[in-house]
Design a protein around this nucleic acid. Sequence first.
DNA 1: TTCAGCGTCTCATTGAGTGAGACGTGACGC
DNA 2: GCGTCACGTCTCACTCAATGAGACGCTGAA
Lengths: 268, 268
Amino acid sequence: MKTRSTPTPDATTTDDAAKPKAAATDRTFAILELVASASGPLAVKTIGATLGLPKPTAHRLVNSLIEKGLLARDLETRDVIIGVEAARLAVGILRASLSRAPVRSVLRAVSAELGETCNVGVLDGGDVVYLDRVEVEHWPLRLQFGVGSRVPMHCTAMGKLFLATLPDAMRSRLLASGPFSAQTAHTLTDPDALAAELQRIAARGYALDDEEYVVGVFCVAVPILSSTGRTVAAIAVQAPKVRLSHDRVEQVLPVLRRGAEALSAQFG
Amino acid sequence: MKTRSTPTPDATTTDDAAKPKAAATDRTFAILELVASASGPLAVKTIGATLGLPKPTAHRLVNSLIEKGLLARDLETRDVIIGVEAARLAVGILRASLSRAPVRSVLRAVSAELGETCNVGVLDGGDVVYLDRVEVEHWPLRLQFGVGSRVPMHCTAMGKLFLATLPDAMRSRLLASGPFSAQTAHTLTDPDALAAELQRIAARGYALDDEEYVVGVFCVAVPILSSTGRTVAAIAVQAPKVRLSHDRVEQVLPVLRRGAEALSAQFG
DNA sequence: TTCAGCGTCTCATTGAGTGAGACGTGACGC
DNA sequence: GCGTCACGTCTCACTCAATGAGACGCTGAA
C-alpha cells in the first residue's frame, strides 16, 4: 500500500524499502552517527551518497546540525567534522547511562570490595572526565574531583592509560601539545620519560599514578573495552598511599578488571 | 527573517514566542539533551513541562527516540532513561572529537594560566569564526559567542589581526567593503583610522580590542603561524576590562605567544 | 575557453508533524 | 465499592515545514 507511483521500472532489486517515508529526524540522527563513526572528516557529498539523500536535502540537514553546534566544518576543506556541542552531549549521555541502577551497582561493588574510592571516566577534549564515582570516606579531595570534573591526561592513571591506547598519530599530536605542568615532584613532565611510561602501560594493560597528581595519593586504572576491543573508558581506584601502593597492585587488578568487564556492555 | 506572514490578527500582544516555529528535530534533540543532563529518570510529563511540549507531542517524540534505542524506559516506573544506542553514539562522538583534543588542551593550559576565557578562531568568508573556546566562568556573554559563532572583523582583536596580516590587495578590498557598523562608542568605523590601527598591529604583532565590540570587554589576540609563516589562525583572551586592560597586556602576551607556538604545530 | 564537480537557490508539492480534545487506565482515599 | 485525579493513549483535521527536481553559480582542472 505504500507503493508510490514512483516510476522505478525495475521491480527486482529496488522494489521497495526505499521511499515509503522520510523522517527528517531519522535522517538527522543518521548523519550524526555517520560523522561520529567515520574515521575522519566527511564531504557532504559522501554523506549524501552513503545515506541516499538528495543533494539539497543533505546540505540542509547538515547545515541545521552545524547551526546547533553538533557538527562543524573543517575550514580548510569544508568537510564535516563532529561539533563541540556533540562532545558535550556525549559526556552527558555516558554519565546518564552510568547512573542506571544495574550499572551503578558494579562500581559500588568494586569500591566495596576494595574498600577504596573508585571512579569511571572517559577522554574528552584532551582530558579526563569523571562520569561516576563512589567514595568510601570523606577526605579532602572529595569535592575537587566529583562527577563531571576534569583532570589532566599526563599525570593521572586514567589519563596515561588513554594516552597509551590512542592511535600513534593522535598520541604524538597530544604529546606535542604539551608542555606538561608539574603538579607534584613526581609528575612526569619530560616528553621522553612520559613516552617510555606509556609504552610500559600499553604493554602491561594498566596504569598507575604514584603521587603524580596529588601528593600522597596512589591510583590504579584499567581500561573498559568496547566490543571491538577499543579502550572507550576506564575504571580506577584511588587511595592514600599509606593504604594503596605498588605492593597491593596485583591484588586490586583482578577486581578492577572484573568491574571493567561488567561495564563494557554499557559502552557498546 | 523568520517572521512569517502569519495571519495573526493581533500583532501587539502575541508578536512572537507563540507558534512561529516548531521543529521536530530541534525538540527531539532537546529531549535527548534533557534526559542526558538529568540527574535521574524523568517522567514524560516532566519532559513535556520542562520543554513546553503538548502532551501528545511529548509522548510521540519520546517514543520515537525509544524506538531508535536512544532512550529507554525504566521498567518499574515507566520513566525515561538514556538508551544503549545513545551510549554507543556517545562513544563514537568522543572518539571523533579526539581530533580537536590537541587544540583544546593548549587552549585550556593558556586559559588556566591567565585565569580568563580564551578562544581560537580563524578567518572565514570575511568573518571571524570561533573554532574552540575555554571559559573560566559563566558570564553573560557566554551563549552569544560560543564555538561556531561569527563575529565581525573590524571591531574584534582577532578580526583586526587577520585584517592586518592579509595581503594588501585583499585588505583594501575588504576595507572598501565598509562602512563598518559602530558596535560601541569605541568602534573604529572610519576606514582611515582603521587602516592606521592595522599598521600598528602589523608592526607590533598583536591586536587589542578595547571595548570596540562589547562595552566593558577587553581582548588581546596573537597570531598562530603556519610553518610557512602565514597567519592561519589566532588565539585570544577576553575579559571584563576591570580585570584585563592595557596595563596587563605585556603580562599576558608571553603566555598567549607560547600557546600560539604550540598550536602552530597543529595547524601546520 | 570549456568542462566537470559541488554547493546554493528556488519553488510547487505534499505528507509528516501537530495538538486540542476525547477516552482508557490505574492508583489512591474513604 | 465508587468517585476522583493524574497520566498515558488515541483520533483526526489542519497546515506548515520538509522535500527534492531543476536551474544557477562558483572554482579549479584540462
